[in-house]
């Protein structure tokens, strides 16, 4: 019996059940804290017609950008999609649909989705194109628009350390959207740099409790830096 042992042996197993047309929520901000091996496995599998929910869409040839090369993505929900020439071309050619979403709203959509809240009201985007077609309500004299939450068939997450129970901690600002994505997947897959012995992670310091996590795998990471900036 596997009990609470959520470790899987291969990336193939990690993404078993991912099919064409599914929605995948990915953690990461820019190239920081992205589940790079899980993304590469989606490329290898050749799954198509995916809806990808992620703050950004990688760069040409790295991160989620690799899924664009074989046109595996049909729709992207993101807050910022610069830094990617292939994405731009597919968008202008009408091959890919993009729903630009304010960053805080995107984070809250994932958080709410994972927390069983179908929609929420926010002042973000009132009076802008983001409000088009959305319900507006006034609370305490201020206008707010209704945003619906997001859940995914799969969530792909990059953690730092995990135990086999699926408890995860993140390293520095590689946390970003990862703990939110982790809550919002029907199947949540977390890849980490190290799987530690049970009891090694301090229960008071866990970022993502194991209840949200279905599969854990240990990988090695390139961790590419987008804007190397040093003191002069």
């Amino acid at each position: 019996m596997a009990g609470f042992d959520k470790r899987v042996a291969s990336y193939e197993e990690a993404l078993a059940g991912l099919e064409d047309g599914m929605t995948v929520i990915a953690g990461g901000f820019g190239l920081c804290g992205i589940p790079e091996n899980l993304i590469n496995e989606i490329k290898r599998k050749g799954t198509r017609d995916l809806t990808v929910v992620s703050n950004n869409c990688g760069v040409d040839g790295f991160g989620l950008g690799v899924l664009l090369q074989d046109r595996q993505v049909s729709k992207v929900i993101a807050s910022y999609v610069g830094e990617n020439a292939l994405f731009e071309k597919q968008l202008l050619d009408g091959e890919i649909e993009v729903v630009l979403t304010p960053q805080g709203t995107l984070a809250e959509k994932m958080r709410a989705g994972g927390a069983g809240i179908p929609a929420f009201f926010t002042a973000t985007g009132v009076g802008t194109p983001v409000a088009d077609g959305k319900e507006i309500r006034e609370f305490k004299g201020r206008a707010y628009l209704m945003e619906e939450s997001i859940t995914g068939d799969f969530a792909i997450v990059k953690g730092w350390k995990a135990d086999h129970f699926g408890n995860v901690i993140y390293r520095h600002t590689a946390q970003n959207f990862n703990p939110l994505a982790a809550t919002a997947g029907k199947i949540t897959v977390v890849e980490v740099e190290e799987i530690v012995e049970p009891g090694e992670l301090d229960p008071t310091q866990i970022h993502t409790p194991g209840i949200y996590v279905d599969r854990i795998i240990c990988g090695t990471f390139e961790k590419r830096i987008e804007q190397l900036t040093e003191r002069s």
């Binding site: 820019g30 920081c32 520095h172 600002t173 961790k223 830096i225 987008e226 804007q227 900036t229 040093e230």
Partner: peptide, 16 residues
């Protein structure tokens, strides 16, 4: 400092 950049430590402009 030079050589001390950490890929997991960036700002919103994606700078280390």
């Amino acid at each position: 400092q030079k050589g001390q950049a950490d890929a997991d430590m960036i700002n919103a402009g994606k700078q280390t």
